[in-house]
Structures are given as structure tokens and as C-alpha cells.
Design a binder for these strands. Structure first.
Length: 275
DNA sequence: TGCCAGGCTTCAC
DNA sequence: GTGAAGCATGGC
């Protein structure tokens, strides 16, 4: 399936820190995995992209990459006097907020606390290889993300052995909460933002920041604005400690993602050194 | 080699 | 209610 699509940059999305299982497979193409599904997306130039997946799955991936949303609209709302956000958004042009599966996102961001992105990726890969179902993709064999049922039967040692450190008990506890039906997409979709955050933070090892990431990347609550060490650093340096969320009511999470991607970039390092 | 990482829970006070 | 300590491990 070939489509024309603006505001869609695979490399930036894969490196934006919102997902940990999307990777390059050569020629600018990327493979993405979700559940037992996979897709290889190849940029063809002139904003055209080839989606290599089962025909029945195209609608799923179109939704997953949030391709129906008008990101130009978000750009048009950026305060032109905000030089920093303007630079960050231009640098992150093409990033979209993915609509990821709830359990995978929850476990991934529980793991993310006090780890850098390569370390997070490694732990998630180990979990998938050891406890996920083997699947076939256009690029050979891979593993699905483990189910709650698969993880909740494991010992704490088996989980810790995926380089998880003290997070082992958090992962096991979350798996049990999902397997028992205490928390699910169906339940969270019935709640408003505050209620969903409250339900998520009731999970052992999930605080405000991780819950906000889950809301943003799995529930597609793009009003969520996770504040981690990178964002906090930016807020202190450029926004007197607080971002003007009110100006971006309903979609501040998109701006957050531009800021995060920019903060971690060489471009920001360079700009900071030459201020 | 030492510092830091998409923080959270626990425990003083 | 608020703030500091402790946490396991890997990347740079």
C-alpha cells in the first residue's frame, strides 16, 4: 500500500523515545511491531510511503501512526514569539504521537525509570526474546511483546534477569493487574484524564510521570504533558519552571514531544553552547 | 571511572 | 503534607 503523507518522519519517530521496538531495516525503511502485527514502512520520496503489511492490517497501522491527525494545525498554533519551542518543533517536524498498545506501553515506561533509552530498549528486547511469542515479519523472525498472562506466571528472578534491577517487582505486579482484569484499555477508555491517571498510578511502580507517558502514548491523551529530567531541565532554563500548557490546551503533549526530542539532540547541545 | 538515566516508594519530620 | 534517602544496572 502506497500513500502520500506529510508530517511523517520514520527516523524521528523511531528515535523520539515514545516507542522502543521500531528500528531501521535499511534504505530508510523501518519495521514497527505491535502485538503480533508488524509492518515495514519505506519512504519513497516526495512524501510517499510504502506500507508492507497484511492488507487487513493497513487500517491498524494507519491508526497506529496517527496518520489521520492534522499536525500542521498543531504547528500553526505555536506561539511565534516562543523561539525555543519554534526551534524544537521545526527540529522535530515529522514526529507523530503513536497509538500504542496499553500493556506494552505500561511495562515499557515502568522499565524506563532511571534508565537511558539504550538500556530500556535492551531490557524490553530481553523480555520479548525470552517470554514473547515468536512471529514472522517481512524481515524474518521476531518476538511479540509478552502478554500479561505470560509475565505474571514468572518468578521475580526470571524477570530481574532481563536487566531490570529493582523494577522487577513493579513489572510483575503490573502484569498481575492486567491479567486479573483490574486494569485494561476498556476500563481506562471510560475514564476522564484525571481518573485514568489515578487508575494508572494505583499500579505499583507507576507514578505521575510514567502514568502521563502511558496516557500520551497508549491512550492518546495528547493533553498529557509528562515531565521528566530532560523536560524539567528545559522548563528551568527557558520557561521559568513551567510550560504555558494553557496556550496549547488539548494538545500540549505534542509540544512536549518536540521539546523532549530537541533536548536530547546534538542541535540543542550546539545551541546551548553558543547562547 | 564516575556520573547519570523519560522516577518511584519508603521513611523521617 | 513535604523532603530526603535508597534503589540495580548499564551506557557514555
Amino acid at each position: 500500500m502506497i500513500i502520500k503523507q506529510s508530517h511523517f518522519d520514520l527516523q524521528k519517530i523511531a528515535n523520539s523515545g515514545q516507542c522502543f521496538r521500531m528500528r531501521p531495516v535499511g534504505n530508510g525503511a523501518y519495521i514497527a511491531l505491535s502485538g503480533i502485527k508488524s509492518v515495514v514502512v519505506t519512504p519513497l520520496g516526495d512524501e510517499k510511503f510504502d506500507f508492507a503489511c497484511a492488507d487487513d492490517d493497513f487500517a491498524f497501522w494507519h491508526h497506529y501512526f496517527d496518520l489521520q491527525t492534522d499536525y500542521e494545525h498543531f504547528f500553526s498554533r505555536i506561539d511565534p514569539r516562543d523561539d525555543f519551542l519554534t526551534a524544537a518543533a521545526n527540529y522535530g517536524h515529522g514526529i507523530r504521537i503513536l497509538r500504542q498498545e496499553l500493556f506494552e506501553t505500561t511495562i515499557s515506561f515502568i522499565i524506563s525509570q532511571r534508565k537511558n533509552i539504550p538500556a530500556i530498549t535492551k531490557s524490553i528486547e530481553l523480555l520479548c526474546e525470552r517470554f514473547g511469542t515468536p512471529i514472522q515479519t517481512k524481515c524474518g523472525g521476531a518476538y511479540a511483546f509478552p502478554s500479561p498472562e505470560a509475565l505474571c506466571t514468572l518468578s521475580i528472578e526470571e524477570i530481574r534477569d532481563c536487566a531490570l534491577g529493582y523494577r522487577d517487582k513493579y513489572v510483575l505486579s503490573a502484569a498481575k493487574a492486567f491479567a486479573s482484569g483490574q486494569i485494561s484499555t476498556a476500563i481506562l477508555e471510560r475514564l476522564n484524564q484525571a481518573q485514568a491517571i489515578e487508575a494508572l498510578t494505583s499500579l505499583y511502580g507507576v507514578g505521575k510521570k510514567v502514568a502521563s507517558c502511558i496516557a500520551l502514548f497508549a491512550l492518546h491523551d495528547i493533553a498529557a504533558f509528562p515531565i521528566d529530567v530532560w523536560i524539567d531541565r528545559i522548563l528551568q532554563a527557558h520557561y521559568n519552571g513551567s510550560f504555558p500548557i494553557g496556550r496549547y490546551e488539548g494538545f500540549a503533549g505534542v509540544m512536549q514531544q518536540y521539546l523532549f526530542y530537541y533536548a536530547r539532540s546534538d542541535a540543542y547541545d550546539y545551541a546551548a553552547k553558543h547562547e
